[in-house]
Amino acid sequence: MPAKHDTSDDEASETPHYHGHRERLRERFYAAGPDALTDYELLEMALFAAIPRRDTKPLAKALLKKFGSFAEVVHAPVARLREVEGVKDASINQLKLLAAAAGRIAKGEIRRNIALSSWNDVIDYCRTGMAFADKEQFRLLFLDKRNQLIADEVQQTGTVDHTPVYPREVIKRALELSATALILVHNHPTTPVSITLDHARSF
């Protein structure tokens, strides 16, 4: 008589090792908060949805090794992300979703408060959307009389070291929005990540 086959043991042995790791990460995230996780662990979790059947730790570490930080990974150009072995469309979509969400959250925080009351506020706000751009942008922040943000628009996108500016279009748009103040900002993709006071002017 053939021996009875124990399916539960087989199923347990076939369960990928990273399943337990994922659950432990989730539990630590919910119990202790995001500060309890390293950058690569947060990146692992961000990739869970894109890569449901493979360990995401090696890819998370490879991305951080190439780009340096969590923020630089999610804001990296698509072409450069594809240079990392194992990065497919699903992973890129997930990373770009995170970048878009971060931008929306930053805009929401600004609009909910007395916005842009200092140059530090301007720099912090712009860094979220511009610091990791691979092309130079000319960005316009339109404000009302209380310095609250009415609109945030990229007027022009140029090359890595040049972007054209059309004053007539800037003034036209400010009048359309009834803005009482205007901040012009541009980035320098060829220099280390930063947006400084010299790159912003109010009118």
Rank of each mutant, 00 (worst) to 15 (best):
A3N: 09
A3T: 11
D6R: 04
D6Q: 05
D10C: 04
D10W: 06
D10M: 10
E11T: 02
A12S: 08
H19G: 01
H19Y: 13
G20P: 03
G20A: 12
L25K: 06
R26T: 08
E27Y: 03
R28V: 10
F29R: 14
A31L: 14
A32L: 11
G33C: 10
G33F: 02
P34E: 12
D35T: 10
A36S: 15
A36C: 03
T38P: 00
T38A: 09
T38Q: 13
Y40L: 00
E41T: 08
L42A: 00
E44K: 03
M45Y: 02
L47H: 02
F48C: 03
F48A: 03
P52Y: 09
R53D: 15
R53P: 02
D55Q: 01
T56N: 07
T56C: 15
T56M: 02
K57W: 06
P58N: 02
L59H: 03
A60G: 02
K61E: 15
L64G: 09
K66P: 02
F67N: 07
H75F: 06
A76R: 10
L81F: 08
R82G: 03
E83A: 11
E83V: 01
E83C: 06
V84F: 07
G86W: 07
D89H: 07
I92E: 06
L97H: 05
L98W: 04
A99V: 00
A99H: 13
A99S: 14
A101S: 12
A106E: 15
K107S: 11
G108C: 01
R111P: 00
R111D: 08
N113P: 00
I114Y: 11
A115D: 11
L116A: 10
S118G: 12
W119T: 09
N120V: 08
D121M: 07
R127F: 09
T128E: 09
G129Y: 08
M130I: 10
F132E: 05
E136N: 02
L140E: 14
L140S: 09
F142A: 13
D144E: 04
N147I: 00
N147A: 05
I150L: 15
D152Y: 13
E153L: 11
V154K: 10
V154I: 15
Q155M: 15
Q156Y: 03
T159A: 14
H162R: 14
P164N: 11
P164M: 05
V165M: 12
Y166S: 03
V170C: 05
I171K: 11
L175N: 07
L177E: 08
A179F: 08
L182N: 08
L182F: 09
V185R: 05
H188I: 03
P189C: 07
T190I: 10
V193Q: 11
S194Q: 14
A200W: 01
S202K: 14
